[in-house]
Computed example of a mutant assay.
Amino acid sequence: MTSLRHNQSSASGAGVEPVPSARDPRDLYLDAARACLLDVGWRRTTLTEVARRAGVSRMTIYRTWADMPRLLADLMTREWSGVVAAAVADQDDSLPRVQRLVSTITATVGTLRANELFVRIVELDPELILPYLLARRGRSQDLILGVVESEILEGQARGDIRPGNPTAIARGVLLAAHGFVLSAHTMVDEQVSEQDVESELALLLTRGLLP
């Protein structure tokens, strides 16, 4: 699972260090939007306030995003993609393929569930997530599906993962993960710990992927 791990081009020639590129101004604007959402939530965040926090004119922000929903979509894509990329980068390549994939998925679920932006949205503006659960997939979901499907295809070719439609298997994995991201806390009490729930997810995924 390397497609998200090596996302910077290497410099040509031995011993030559890559020259760091300047940060995309859009990232600075998204940083400002993220800070707004953490502070006051979606309903009270405006493009004008984002511009003020970013230290640019309103027209600069309006030229980049025509409205807040488009800005939010880019912010969530960046945030969730970053969570996935971090989990992939931290995976242990010495583990068997299924165990490695399951470990990466469960780590992603746990990190996303604790992500401060995700928690803030769920607390204040849960309706922002509903379209991606009830109506359509988002870009970050498609990114995750692509990574998981690629790993499943490689595992099937080596006999490590059960036969079947890799696209359908990847989508089943993502659907299972959705529930653990959004609702795991409702299943935690004096009888079942968060770790117990996470172990059940790992077992569910492992048995669903092994031949």
Score class of each variant (00 low, 15 high):
S3W: 02
S3T: 12
Q8F: 08
S12T: 11
S12M: 13
S12R: 09
V16M: 08
G41C: 04
G41T: 00
T45S: 03
T45V: 03
L47M: 11
R53G: 00
S57F: 07
D67H: 10
M68V: 15
P69W: 05
P69F: 08
A73N: 10
A73E: 06
T77V: 06
R78N: 07
E79C: 12
E79I: 10
G82D: 09
V83R: 08
V83D: 14
Q91S: 12
D93N: 05
V98C: 03
Q99R: 13
S103H: 12
S103Y: 05
T106D: 05
T111A: 07
L112R: 14
V119P: 00
V119G: 00
V119H: 02
E123M: 03
E127Y: 11
I129A: 10
P131I: 04
P131Q: 14
Y132V: 10
L134S: 13
R136H: 12
R137C: 03
D142F: 06
I144Q: 02
I144C: 07
E149D: 04
L153M: 14
L153C: 12
G155W: 12
Q156W: 08
A157I: 06
G159K: 07
I161T: 11
P163R: 06
N165G: 11
T167W: 02
A170H: 01
H178M: 10
H185V: 11
M187T: 15
M187R: 15
Q191M: 06
V192Q: 08
E198V: 13
E200H: 13
L203G: 02
T206P: 03
R207F: 08
G208R: 04
G208K: 06
